[in-house]
Design a protein around this nucleic acid. Structure first.
Lengths: 161, 161
DNA sequence: TACTTTCCCAACTAAAATAGTCAAGATTTC
DNA sequence: GAAATCTTGACTATTTTAGTTGGGAAAGTA
């Protein structure tokens, strides 16, 4: 199973797009700055998101990205699938050849778990996230940039340290 | 989040122990052969399982490993936690400093997902797995070794190919 | 037209994690 | 004392992650 920074970045960036809906195309540079994600890395991710029609792009000055469909029609699972190849936890990716071409002892366990996670993430839309109070608070903070000055010198410190 | 071969191997090996309960200590060599896992790698995993008292060991000839408590008291989540350091999906591992020392946009999403997975895996015991029909079938197959001869030359082929 | 802004794309790379191997040793049984 | 088994730590190859680099193509603006 893969649920890494790649998927987190993709969902975060998509949520950023959703939160700025109505302001015209949003540039990756804006997202990169607001969400603290490398611009070049975002470009890679958006290349995949675009291929899945999850975002639409406009080139040139004033251009940028916007959601490919409505926020309530885009589900987290889709976004993660678009950038990470799979969210399957089985070794054989659904085939039943995990061990010597036969099903391994725990095949169904991982298969069930995958379904569980998949169902969970495919029932949460970007709109659902936007409706959450905590998300709106963070978005507000990012918007007005009223960051406590005492924290500014810690920018760039690895998370979790 | 980490749900990789390491965790899968650990659960599979523990389930093997559970299935052979009552036969005295089981050697890692047996498990390695039955489940197709490298012996040295199993040694690493069991070192951690033993530190968490999930297994008990007996040295010397006739020795091996047995479950540290009853199969119905050992939960999948425990086993995975013992070998993988964490199954958290948040970047900050529960702290709220994901972005510039503040909570990132999607913190709660990953936090909720982690709880979901954690709850799921901590409600399935080894005994539950043993009670599953599919598991018993695979165990039977492994026991009697009646492997289709046409498959034998495919042993060692990478899964999923 | 020239210039700038933006998306687009492919190749490269450093660091970390994964999935092991290898070598030595400690216990116990026979 | 020899063999079987666990125990430990260090080493290693491969893959993945999380980027960087460098070029381009399209579109708007002067």
């Amino acid at each position: 199973m893969k649920l890494t920074t790649k998927g987190r970045y993709a969902v975060t960036a998509m949520l950023d797009l959703a939160l700025h809906y109505g302001e015209g195309p949003i540039t990756l540079a804006d997202i990169a700055q607001r969400q603290g994600i490398s611009l070049s890395y975002l470009e890679q991710l958006f290349s995949r998101l675009r291929r899945q029609s999850l975002v639409a792009s406009v080139r040139g000055p004033g251009g940028g990205y916007s959601l490919g469909k409505e926020a309530r029609e885009i589900f987290i699972g889709e976004v993660i699938s678009a950038v990470d190849e799979n969210m399957d936890t089985t070794k054989c990716h659904g085939a039943h050849n995990c061990q010597n071409n036969e099903r391994c002892l725990t095949h169904d366990l991982w298969s069930d778990l995958s379904n569980q996670i998949y169902t969970y993430l495919n029932n949460i839309s970007l709109q659902d996230l936007m409706d959450r109070k905590a998300v709106r608070e963070v978005a507000d903070r990012q918007e007005h940039g009223d960051v406590d000055a005492s924290l500014l010198d810690q920018v760039g410190t690895p998370a979790g340290v």
